[in-house]
């Protein structure tokens, strides 16, 4: 792993306009859902960054922007030294080759009328490979990397003949067939059974170790993030609230939201007594965001000063940044919120 950034995101914003009724259509004042509101981070070469948060935190949107499935509202993204948003056709084609995505639901990402060979060969053909034998060889090669062995037995099958785990492997094989530099995986194991989840996680780990693939792993499951990722970024209502080394963040969370999130993860050990931090479980309205810190209405440590918080990330521990205005030692639990 080098410390050279492959992707650099600066002040990224993504706002969606909302029309609530006929009045809004004619009014000049627009209301927005701020799905991503001014976030910055880097992903180094050969690194797996985990992106965690509740539904509506903006984690999936971030992933989709990084493969250009969505446009940005504002902000700069550099990919491998190039400006990410250049629109020339050639650049675009090169970019599509180097960045790939794996989706959550392996039952819906594969075309049911394509054989596995056709599915994986399609990107090769689009990018100009014509020789049929070469295409076939390459497909076999990636199927084997994705551990679908013996690969010859899978190439002429259709998706409905495969199990969920096998389909996800096909999706991964298709993702790596162009030898990409960067892969976005959005909840790639949440639809799979526990007994095969580990296989897919180990495969992604291997791709990083052996091919040096850089990855953004989007998930709400902190245990799989801890297993797979080097670093982790926690998002809350469009903001990054904490970012740092995955093990460090999970063992020594600095931001109150990270603490709450971690205290809610069930542990498979009946002797383990979890210390729960209880909070109101309703997420605030995404249109009328609270003043100051977005987590403050639910935060068990909240004070008056939180109204002035602007989510600036502060390095609280070695290479671990938190957007809370307080350090860990300064956080005092409000007695009324925790029962």
């Amino acid at each position: 792993m080098s410390n050279e950034p492959l992707i650099k995101v600066e002040n990224l914003k993504k706002y969606y306009t909302v029309n609530k009724g006929i009045k809004d259509i004619f009014s000049k004042e627009k209301t927005y859902v701020k799905a991503i509101d001014d976030i910055s981070f880097v992903i180094n070469k050969g690194e797996i960054l985990g992106l965690a948060g509740e539904s509506g935190s903006g984690k999936t949107t971030t992933g989709e922007i990084l493969v250009r499935l969505q446009d940005t509202t504002e902000g700069e993204i550099t990919f491998d030294g190039h400006d990410f948003m250049t629109k020339s056709k050639e650049e675009e084609k090169r970019f599509r080759k180097e960045v790939q995505m794996i989706f959550q639901d392996p039952y819906e990402t594969l075309n049911p009328r394509f054989t596995i060979l056709e599915t994986i060969a399609e990107p090769l053909k689009i990018h100009g490979m014509k020789d049929k034998d070469k295409i076939y060889d390459r497909v076999i090669e990636v199927l084997e990397i994705a551990e679908l062995k013996p690969a010859e037995q899978y190439v002429f099958r259709y998706p409905h003949e495969l199990s969920g785990g096998q389909r996800q492997r096909v999706a991964i094989a298709r993702g790596i067939v162009m030898d990409p530099k960067f892969l976005v995986a959005d909840e790639p194991v949440s639809m799979l059974d526990v007994s095969i989840r580990a296989d897919i996680l180990n495969l992604l780990k291997r791709l990083r170790n052996e091919m040096g693939l850089t990855m953004l792993y989007v998930s709400h499951d902190l245990s799989t993030i801890k297993y797979l990722c080097d670093r982790i970024a926690i998002m809350y209502l469009g903001k990054i609230v904490e970012i740092g080394d995955a093990n460090e963040v999970i063992d020594h969370p600095q931001h109150p939201y990270t603490k709450v999130l971690l205290s809610a993860v069930p542990v498979a050990n009946p002797d383990h007594k979890r210390e729960r931090i209880e909070i109101d479980d309703e997420v605030p309205d995404q249109i009328n965001l609270p003043e100051g810190c977005r987590f403050s209405p639910r935060c068990p440590f909240v004070t008056e000063a939180c109204k002035k918080c602007d989510h600036t990330l502060v390095e609280r521990r070695d290479k671990q940044w938190s957007a809370c205005i307080y350090s860990d030692e300064e956080l005092i639990l409000k007695p009324s919120t925790n029962q």
Binding site: S195, L201, V265, V267, A268
Partner: peptide, 10 residues
Amino acid sequence: GLQNAFPSIK
């Protein structure tokens, strides 16, 4: 087998 396959946060 199930026990081996299960990631734990701890």
